[in-house]
Simulated scan of single mutants.
Amino acid sequence: MTPIARAGSALLFVLLAGCAAVSGSKPADGGVRITLVGDSTQTEKQGYGTGFCANLTAAVDCVNRAKGGASTKTYRREGLWDAAQSPKPDWMLIQFGHNDVQSSAHLERQTDLVTEYPANLRRFVTEARAAGIKPILVTPIARRYFQPDGRIVDDLPGHVEAMKKVAAEMNVPLIDLHTLSQTYFEKLGETAAHKLGATKAGPDGSIVPDKTHFNLDGSYVLGRMVAEAMVASVPELAPYLRKEAAVRP
């Protein structure tokens, strides 16, 4: 791909991110509204949001309410949780963890793994159900922290297990995206996995892989993965999955 083509692809990704963030159009007869609630790894600009929505049929109004940098605490505090319920979705994919970690440099985002993080998830589930919304919990996507042996360092095992426990206790459908994505990245290998990711400036000004976020290729690959996992977890949503994987523009 030439530099001009790469630039054009990047621009298209940004344009898609800007126009697809919130739909809100009324679902067609027999259709459903599905809303994404989470952090940057769900967004159109840096996550799998564009690819996820592209893999759903025209009968789905796919609304993306994810916010970069959000944790289970800040998403509510900033009024994003209330906003995510309008227009009212039928289903809601809730994914947090990356910004809840206590090692985060952003202290205002942190939540206690043992008490606050699971309590926040339970509250999301309880309030969604009270509003007539069906929640689906999604474990945080794996970061691409490869070791020399080709395995990925798992930096969120506690959050993954905490979410699984909440899902089991409250009988909530679960998409274990953390395990699915980590297994997939390790099978691809470090070089190929990084080709799905964004890039950023390193400490010395060089361009290095962004091991958390995705480019448009990654959005479509991971978006399809999430869409298929959603249907596996909630079979009644199967009619809304495109039979063939969406092809990235």
Score class of each variant (00 low, 15 high):
216 L>K: 04
199 T>V: 13
222 L>S: 03
97 G>D: 06
221 V>R: 02
15 L>P: 11
138 V>C: 05
51 G>Q: 01
115 T>Q: 15
62 C>V: 11
104 S>Y: 09
32 V>R: 01
50 T>E: 12
153 V>G: 12
28 A>R: 11
210 D>P: 04
220 Y>F: 11
6 R>A: 14
96 F>Y: 13
187 K>V: 07
59 A>M: 12
150 G>P: 03
97 G>W: 05
114 V>P: 07
175 I>K: 04
115 T>K: 15
33 R>T: 01
34 I>C: 00
62 C>H: 02
24 G>Y: 12
131 A>R: 03
73 K>C: 11
104 S>C: 03
22 V>C: 15
114 V>M: 14
198 A>G: 15
174 L>Q: 05
126 T>C: 08
10 A>W: 12
126 T>H: 09
206 S>Y: 08
142 A>E: 06
5 A>F: 14
245 A>Q: 07
239 P>L: 11
196 L>W: 01
168 A>H: 02
166 V>K: 03
152 I>G: 06
236 E>R: 15
17 A>R: 09
134 K>F: 05
170 M>L: 12
110 Q>W: 02
103 S>F: 10
241 L>G: 04
226 V>M: 08
193 A>R: 00
39 D>C: 00
238 A>W: 13
134 K>T: 08
85 Q>F: 08
69 G>I: 01
108 E>V: 08
169 E>P: 01
55 N>F: 03
56 L>S: 01
129 R>L: 00
24 G>Q: 14
31 G>V: 13
144 R>K: 02
15 L>F: 14
64 N>D: 06
26 K>M: 15
205 G>V: 09
51 G>I: 02
181 S>E: 06
120 N>P: 10
242 R>A: 13
55 N>C: 02
56 L>K: 02
215 N>H: 12
182 Q>G: 11
155 D>L: 04
82 D>K: 07
99 N>C: 10
92 M>L: 12
45 K>G: 14
8 G>Y: 10
200 K>V: 04
18 G>E: 11
114 V>T: 15
146 F>P: 00
234 V>W: 06
222 L>K: 04
34 I>D: 00
38 G>V: 03
145 Y>T: 07
92 M>C: 11
62 C>L: 10
215 N>T: 12
61 D>S: 08
79 G>T: 07
198 A>L: 13
62 C>Y: 02
227 A>P: 03
234 V>E: 09
176 D>A: 08
96 F>P: 06
